[in-house]
Simulated scan of single mutants.
Amino acid sequence: MNLFENIISEDKLNPVFKMLQTAKQLDPAKLLIHEISSEMKDNDRNFIEQFQSTGFNSRLWEIFLFKFFKENGFSFDFTKNRPDFHLEKNGIDFFVEASLSNEVAEEKFTKEFIREAEKNNDLVVQEELIEHYVMRMGSVLYSKLQKKYWELEWVKGKPLVIAIAPAHNYLSNFLPDAKIIEYLYGLSYESKSKEEAHIPIKVVRTENHKLGEKEIPPNFFELPDTENISAIIFTNNSDLHKFNRMGHQKGISKEFILMERAGLAFGTIPSAYPVEFSQSIIPGEIKEDWNEAVCIFHNPNAIIPLNRDLISNIRQTWIDENGELEGTMPKFYPFNSKTLPVAIE
C-alpha cells in the first residue's frame, strides 16, 4: 500500500492527513507509517481511501497494532478479512478486532469547549468528561460485542481479543486507564483524598456510570456474551505523536527536527506518586518501544483465556483467586504525555 498517493479529491482529504503529508515536523511519522503500511494487506480494499478521509484515526490504530504485534514476534494470517488480525506465536493463534472511540457528530466536548472549561476551572465539566470517556469507550466495546465474531467458523475455539484506543475528543488520550479498569471489572481504586486522587488505598465496587439521562452499568466482563471475549488490549499512546517519536529516534527523516516530550508516569509500585518526566527525542537514542503504555486486561470469565506469557514487558491486569485486581507493571509506564516537534530550516 502507498498511503500517501492521493486517491480521493482534495476537498475530501482528512485535515490531519493533509498536515501529515506536508508538515516537516511530522516527516518521521510520515516515513515510518509508509514503511510499516507497505508490509500490510488491504483485505477490505478501502484502507487507503479511509486513511486519507474519514477513517484516518481508525486506520492509524490498525497500523500501530500491526507494528506492535510484529515487534512482539507474532506472524499474520491474512486469508480472512474479519476480525482485523489473525495472529500466531509459539503454536498459539488468536484473533484481534481493532476498535476506536471516534468523535461523533453531536460531540459536545469540542477542543474549544474543553479549553474554556479548563480556563474557568470548571470541575463539573471535568467530571462529565470522565463519565463521557467511559461511556464512549463502553459504547464501542458493546457495539463490537454485537458482531459475535466468535460464531465465525474460523474463529471458533480460538481466543478473541478486542483492541481499543480513545480518540473521541481533545483530551481522550490524556486520561489514564483507571477508568477502563472500572468499566471492565466493576472495580476501582478508592483514593486517599480528592486532593490526592492519584494515590489508591483500596479497591471498591464501582457504581453505575451516569451522564445526564444516560446511564450504563459497570463490569463489562459480566455482560451477556462477554465470556467469548478473552481480553481487551488498550493504550492511549498510539497517536501520530507516537509514530513521530518512534520515527525520529530511529533517524528515519533527513529533516532537522527538535523534539521534546513531557508527561506523567508510574513505576512498578501501584501506590507510588506519578512522576513527572521529560525527554529529548534524539536520532539514534532509543528511549521508547512499541510496548510502552500498552495494557492487556484479561477477562476473568473468558471461556478461552488468553495466555499471559505471549507478550512480556507490558502492563497486564487480571482478577486473582480472591477476586482482587492483580497484574504486572513495567518499570516505566507513562499514562499521558505531550510531544513538541519543531522543524528547523
Rank of each mutant, 00 (worst) to 15 (best):
K111L: 13
I114N: 07
M135N: 01
I180E: 02
A167G: 10
I181T: 03
I199G: 05
A165L: 01
S191C: 14
I180W: 01
Y185F: 10
L187E: 02
I201Q: 13
E118L: 14
R205D: 06
T206V: 06
L171N: 07
E213L: 13
A167Q: 04
V155P: 01
E190M: 13
F113V: 10
F113L: 11
E151H: 08
G157W: 05
M135P: 01
L160M: 02
S191T: 12
L171A: 07
I114R: 07
L184N: 01
M137F: 07
D177F: 06
I201G: 08
F174H: 09
K111D: 13
I164Q: 03
N169T: 06
K158L: 02
W150I: 02
P176N: 15
A197Q: 15
R115A: 14
M135K: 00
E151C: 05
E118P: 01
S143W: 04
S193R: 05
Y183A: 00
F174N: 04
I114K: 08
K148N: 09
V140P: 01
Y142I: 08
L141K: 02
R205A: 07
K111I: 12
Y149I: 03
V134T: 06
V134R: 01
A197G: 15
V161A: 01
K210T: 10
Y189K: 10
L187N: 02
S191R: 09
Y170N: 08
Y170D: 09
V203D: 02
E116I: 11
I201T: 15
Y183T: 00
V204S: 10
L171C: 08
S191G: 13
I201F: 11
I199S: 03
K194G: 08
P200E: 06
V124I: 15
V161I: 11
E116T: 11
V155M: 03
Q146R: 12
